[in-house]
């Protein structure tokens, strides 16, 4: 095998390096110039034109010497806020809950005993069990009863004149208590909706939010061990729009997609499911 010598004389190598350097410099220069032309001229001018921006200001904005977003000011919406709930999960609310006083909550809860039971577990299935519910859920609902976002002939009255801190104290008190242990039932329809949901009908799995999962909306209540009658009433109220304090219609949307048979099964399923 005849091989040519690969090693070149220093002069040849120097000449070749020069050629390579020139070529590489040229390539980098071309890419740089093309990038500048595309990024600062072509794209801004063409895309700016589609929203009525003249070429010069489009270029200035691309370079960053002229401020100005949004590109096209929207017709500012004339709508006034009509929130379905006044609760926002800012530092004030979260701080009130963090500083919630369980002992004071226990005192305040004496008023609630008549319906919700001395242990926070009610004997009348119309009234929800409170013990073991999350503090966020209780805070949100009491706040909504007070503001009128949620209405109930008893709770709307009871919640009036309670301060934010009293609501928070009650919330942390009930959250600190033990929930009732229940048996369990086999219902493949309900279990499937609870665990998998039904994407074809845009029904997310109930457990995606209602199992105390971090990452879901913080105010989502625990459903496990709740009374069947209470759960079913709430699902029906959401579906008929008689209850509408769910922010961005999360539950109204889902409950309208459920059949009444499914609501019944889900209510029974959660009432009987033991806590993990």
């Amino acid at each position: 095998m005849a091989t040519e010598p690969l090693d070149l004389t220093p002069e040849q190598r120097a000449a070749e390096d020069r050629t390579f350097r020139r070529g590489a410099a040229l390539a980098v220069g071309v890419v740089l110039v093309a990038g500048i032309v595309l990024g600062f001229v072509v794209l801004p001018v063409v895309q700016g034109a589609s929203v009525g921006l003249d070429a010069w200001s489009a270029i200035c904005r691309a370079i960053g010497v002229q401020p100005g977003t949004p590109i096209a000011r929207q017709p500012s919406s004339e709508a006034a806020a009509t929130p379905v709930s006044q609760v926002s999960w800012g530092p004030a609310t979260l701080g009130a809950l963090r500083n919630g006083n369980v002992a004071r909550g226990a005192q305040l809860s004496r008023v609630c005993d008549a319906c919700h039971g001395a242990q926070g577990l009610s004997s009348d299935p119309q009234f929800p069990n409170m013990s073991g519910q999350t503090a966020y859920a209780i805070y949100k609902q009491l706040h909504d009863f007070r503001s009128g976002a949620r209405k109930n002939y008893l709770m709307s009255i009871v919640a009036t004149y309670r301060s934010d801190q009293s609501i928070a104290d009650l919330a942390v008190y009930y959250a600190s208590r033990q929930a009732l242990q229940h048996g369990s039932i086999e219902d493949p329809v309900a279990a499937n909706l609870a665990v998998r949901g039904d994407p074809a009908r845009s029904i997310a799995a109930c457990n995606a939010c209602h199992l105390g999962n971090p990452g879901a909306p913080v105010e989502t209540p625990n459903l496990i061990g709740q009374h069947k009658e209470y759960l079913l009433n709430q699902l029906q109220a959401f579906a008929h729009d008689t209850r509408h304090n769910d922010v961005y219609a999360r539950m109204r949307t889902i409950s309208t997609a459920l059949t009444s048979d499914e609501m019944e099964r889900l209510a029974a399923y959660y009432a009987a499911t033991p806590r993990p």
């Binding site: 794209l43 063409v46 895309q47 589609s50 949004p70 590109i71 009509t82 379905v84 800012g90």
Partner: peptide, 28 residues
Amino acid sequence: ALALHISPPSNVERIDPKTLQLSDEFTE
């Protein structure tokens, strides 16, 4: 980007997510 107008939004507009549902524009 040029012919189909597919590009990342160039519009930077801030809005507080904590109070989004209490805001005028994004109220329910």
